[in-house]
Design a binder for these strands. Structure first.
Length: 780
DNA sequence: CAGTGAGCGAGCTTCCGCTTGACTT
């Protein structure tokens, strides 16, 4: 039996460390926190100095039992959870739960999983730092108090099952406010002037710094240039350099994987977890940009052997985010000599990104020569400017170039291009000059990854919670990740060519979005409610403010119960006051008067989502009166919908004709426009406008759908026509009315299924407990 | 999922941060 039990947070880490320590040590993992506040309301005894009630959750019972047993048998227990607030608390929870003794317990910490770091940690044990533990308790209690008092206010004042919290509510606020900035934005048009000089390979582009808001001015400029002479007035050459970015943290990995590989934040984390478990990379939930000494040496060796001496440059990076706790290394390959790894495609690509970024971070800067040529115009006082760039030494660019958030690359045109050899005073041949109407752009919508970046800048959330937070705000229906079609926009182009100026109008698609975060109406209403009644909590600096206080607690400068007490008193009073006095939040907005009926048209959020209402609410003295209702469509919002758009919604559902004696109705459902006929449904193809569906088109679509369904059909039953065996995407299944039933593996030939068998399978399926629905079982 | 939106009331929901698996229609 090993004399020593060492406990870390992650099992993959435990495996590595066990290898370093030898036979005298058993290394186990706690799998993160082993205890949490109980779910019930009495988790925190407010009257009794915020005393907490903890429990070991069901899924941790087994681990705790095993650790307890091993701890009893060991001579010494080493608590080696991470060196940060949460890690210290994990050590304390372990100490308390496993009934450890002071004399036989040691607390150690290390920031990197290398043999020298572990050995040094073992040589320098300490005691549990209770100030740090208290800071974590304050954090935990504050989050519970905020979350579990605010959410019920929303259930009463907005809708059941909603949630609010220190992190998620600010995330939603960021999205809501950005959307409003975009809606408010007034785009301004101006003509941008660009000239092409010379022909073929010798040609280059020069631009005018000034822009003209009036077409006449742009036209005048071009006309003035018809007979002008263009001379190189000055030439300036300057060296320039570019340095590599720091190795990845969780947040920057999520951003780059999103931009370069198109991964969602959660996908990135799933793939990184696999790489970590396979031993290919270091821990992927980190806010540190540091590399260990061993890693620095390995990187150096690798760079020198692969690219040569002059490509290596030793670099140390400093964290930029204020809240960073730096309990781990930056994300890097465990072995720099592995340029690629075995694994599936997504793992290979993410590994390559991590390898390149880490290697590049220790490489020399890239060097350029930038040339600026100013070109005079004989008929005008303005100058055209041409920029050229020549790379003199690639440095880190040999392996890696960080992408930036700005997707618009048109601005970079010409910047990176090479200029032909020019001399001062040289006369230039104008090939063509364009004045193109360009529009100023609204601020960009957030992607999952750019939201993470923003949260990190505000110090809100932690590496382990970025991905879950993004999921939460989508699961609650506050935010949707969507594609939206753009609009056609006309713009004018003036061209000077062959000594004459011509005008034309072109069209471009603008405002199209892919994978961007949009607030929903419920998200906006909840946000406005919170901003109105709990300004302090959804303030962008709230977390930073409390973090400062947590730091003071960690340093032993403040009592955690005092801090929480000071926070809770006014907060709880706000909660009480809001419950008593605030109106229900529905986001109601009047759009105007119905042009024919003369009745009021309004929008708001109802039980089933946002809808339009024509007419007043039904009242007691006129019971027969009923207002008209229509749901909003995806992409529409109660904040921006116009009266005209709202009235359009009442044109559907519409009967477009008859087929087999039954009406065909066109309507719009949650998944888009569809035709219903005899309780069957056909989705409408994108090209067909739901308002213009003809009877013939509808019949064609229905017969087509039937043909396709018939191809999928394996077996039908005389006993009941609603029961069928069908071929689906994942193999055959039974359609039992509206219920879809999977066919068990022991039935190899679905053709042999009898009606009775199908019925029995459907019965069993509906009785089987669905995952995550305890209430389902309770109700029955 | 498939054209709803009243009001009543039981019984439910909910936070953030550490960790991995167990789930797959």
């Amino acid at each position: 039996m090993a004399k020593n039990l060492l406990i870390v947070e992650s099992p993959a880490k435990a495996k590595t460390i066990e290898g370093y320590l030898g036979k005298d040590f058993t290394v186990k993992s706690s799998y993160g926190h082993i205890r949490d506040l109980v779910k019930s309301e009495d988790a925190i005894d407010i009257a009794n100095n915020f005393e907490q009630k903890y429990e070991v959750p069901a899924d941790k019972k087994q681990i705790v039992a095993e650790l307890k047993k091993l701890a009893k048998e060991a001579d010494m227990v080493w608590l080696a959870s991470d060196e940060d607030r949460e890690g210290e608390a994990i050590s304390w929870h372990l100490f308390d739960t496993l009934n450890l003794k002071d004399a036989t317990t040691k607390r150690i910490v290390f920031h990197e999983i290398t043999k020298p770091a572990i050995m040094a940690a073992i040589d320098n044990p300490r005691k549990i730092d209770y100030n740090l533990v208290n800071a974590q308790q304050a954090r935990r209690v504050l989050d519970r108090l905020v979350g579990f008092e605010l959410s019920p206010v929303l259930w009463k004042k907005v809708k059941p099952s909603l949630s609010a919290g220190r992190v998620q509510s600010v995330a939603v606020r960021i999205i809501v406010e950005r959307e409003r900035e975009i809606n408010k934005f007034k785009s301004e048009a101006a003509f941008k002037i660009a000239a092409i000089f010379g022909k073929g390979k010798q040609s280059f582009k020069a631009e005018l710094a000034e822009r003209y808001s009036q077409q006449e001015d742009a036209e005048k400029f071009l006309t003035d240039c018809i007979d002008a002479d263009f001379d190189v007035k000055s030439l300036e050459t300057k060296p320039a350099k570019r340095s590599p970015a720091a190795p990845f943290t969780t947040s920057t990995l999520q951003q780059e994987a999103s931009r370069k590989l198109g991964y969602s934040v959660s996908r990135t984390m799933q793939v990184a977890q696999k790489l970590y478990e396979a031993g290919h990379i270091t821990y992927m939930r980190t806010d540190s940009v540091n590399l260990s000494e061993t890693a620095l040496q390995a990187a150096e060796q690798q760079i020198i052997s692969a690219y040569g001496d002059k490509y290596h440059q030793h670099r140390k990076y400093k964290t930029k985010s204020a809240g960073a706790q730096e309990a781990h290394e930056a994300i890097r390959p465990t072995y720099f000599n592995n340029h690629t790894i075995d694994g599936d495609n997504s793992e290979k690509r993410l590994y390559e990104l991590i390898w390149k970024r880490a290697i590049a971070s220790q490489m020399s800067e890239a060097q350029f020569e930038k040339t600026t040529a100013k070109i005079s115009i004989s008929t005008r006082k303005e100058e055209l400017v041409a920029n050229g760039e020549v790379m003199k030494f690639d440095g880190f660019l040999k392996v890696y170039l960080e992408s930036d958030d700005d997707e618009d690359d048109t601005q970079q045109d010409g910047d990176n291009a090479m200029l032909p050899p020019l001399t001062k005073g040289q006369r230039l041949e104008l090939e063509e000059m364009l004045a193109t109407e360009r529009f100023s752009r609204p601020p960009a919508r957030y992607t999952e990854a750019s939201l993470v970046k923003k949260l990190e800048e505000l110090g809100i959330g932690r590496p382990s919670t970025y991905a879950p937070t993004i999921s939460t705000i989508q699961n609650r229906g506050y935010v949707v990740k969507e594609e939206r079609e753009g609009k056609q926009r006309k713009f004018r182009v003036l061209t000077l060519k062959n000594k004459s100026v011509s005008k034309e109008e072109r069209t471009e698609n603008t405002g199209a979005e892919r994978g961007k975060l949009f607030p929903t109406d419920i998200g906006a209403v909840v946000n406005d409610f919170l901003v109105q009644h709990f300004k302090g909590i959804v303030d962008f600096n709230f977390t930073a403010k409390v973090e400062k206080q947590f730091d003071e607690i960690a340093q032993g400068l403040e009592e955690w119960t005092t801090m929480i007490g000071n926070f809770y008193k006014p907060f709880h009073a706000d909660v009480q006051n809001t419950i008593e006095t605030a109106d229900k939040a529905t986001g109601v907005r009047d759009l105007g008067i119905h042009p024919e009926k003369g009745e009021k048209v309004s929008v708001r959020i109802g039980r089933y989502g946002p809808f339009v209402q024509v007419g007043e609410n039904a009242s007691d003295d006129n019971k027969d009166y009923k207002p008209l209702y229509a749901s909003l469509r995806t992409g529409q919002s109660i904040e921006t919908i116009t009266l005209e758009e709202a009235l359009e919604l009442f044109k559907l559902p519409k009967v477009v004709g008859e087929y087999e004696g039954k009406p065909m109705k066109v309507a719009i459902g949650r998944f888009g426009p569809y035709i219903s006929h005899n309780s069957a449904f056909v989705s409408l193809p994108k090209e067909i406008d739901p308002l213009d569906v003809t009877e013939e088109q509808a019949i064609e679509l229905i017969t087509e759908k039937r043909k396709k369904d018939a191809e999928k059909l394996i077996k039908a039953f005389d006993e009941d026509p609603t029961v069928k065996v069908l071929n689906g995407r994942w193999g055959p299944y039974i359609e039992f009315g509206k219920q879809n039933v999977k066919i068990p593996k022991d039935i190899t030939d679905p053709l042999t299924l009898t009606f009775e068998q199908c019925k029995a399978l459907a019965d069993a399926d509906s009785k089987a407990p669905k995952k995550g629905s305890k209430k389902f079982a309770k109700k029955k």
